[in-house]
């Protein structure tokens, strides 16, 4: 038991002393996951909203596939991205594997189905009514979608937060395409995983606490914003 308490004490020390290595790792994590979330959201949310209100053949099957894709394992995404970016792969010439860019690409693809599925479900259940009003008031297709996004912005923001949480807490994809290289592609989760293997608990615990804090802050911010609405 002692080593756990010790681990916590040392972890707190690492955090309050602003240990540079830890904070570099945290910033890289935030940078990669935020960029990926923003990219994925910009593509997936308008698409999800418009597919949600669209009537088309096989929409049910489409929903089911979409919801399955939402929980695509991160290692699968990591593997696919790694295969395409590897030196022998189709995009090998770009020399992207084991770089921050590769991590952003992988997380973007990881989060896109999630972001799409959540927007799609939201739009399917609540977008129709808004679309009807928009049509009766003379809005065109683009204007309807923009209106739905604005009307559902709180729920969409919750979706974005969910996507971000998924991105920042996943380890499989970033580990595979980033390689956990010190000072370059080492993020919170890959470090925790590695430190755990090495039995170096204080740093793992410190990063675990920070990861929880980030999650807490993001969700409190969203919560207080949705209260205001």
């Amino acid at each position: 038991m002692d080593y756990i308490l010790d681990g916590f004490k040392q972890a707190i020390n690492l955090i309050i002393s602003f240990n540079k290595e830890i904070f570099d790792i945290v910033f890289l994590s935030l940078f990669v996951s935020t960029t990926a979330t923003v990219l994925a959201s910009m593509i997936s949310i308008p698409l999800g909203i418009s597919f949600g209100i669209k009537k088309f053949r096989g929409k049910r099957l489409f929903s089911r596939i979409t919801y399955t894709m939402m929980s695509i394992p991160s290692v699968v995404v990591g593997l696919l991205v790694a295969i395409t970016l590897s030196r022998r792969g189709p995009f090998g010439r770009l020399e992207l594997l084991y770089t921050t860019k590769a991590m952003i690409i992988a997380q973007t693809f990881l989060v896109m189905p999630l972001s799409f599925g959540l927007s799609f479900g939201l739009s399917k259940s609540r977008g129709k009514e808004i679309q009807k009003v928009a049509i009766t008031l003379g809005a065109n297709k683009y204007q309807s979608i923009m209106l739905i996004i604005r009307e559902l912005k709180v729920d969409i923001l919750v979706n974005v937060a969910t996507s971000f949480s998924r991105a920042i807490s996943e380890v499989g994809a970033v580990m595979i395409v980033g390689g956990n290289i010190k000072y370059h592609t080492r993020v919170i989760t890959t470090t925790i995983s590695m430190m755990n293997s090495m039995g170096d608990y204080p740093m793992a615990i410190a990063l675990g606490i920070i990861l929880l804090l980030i999650s807490f802050i993001v969700h409190s911010a969203i919560y207080s914003y949705s209260k205001e609405d």
Binding site: T136, G138, L147, E151
Partner: peptide, 14 residues
Amino acid sequence: RKKMTLVFQKAYLF
């Protein structure tokens, strides 16, 4: 459609 409008029984306001 742009020349007409419909007000619903339970209207949705933005």
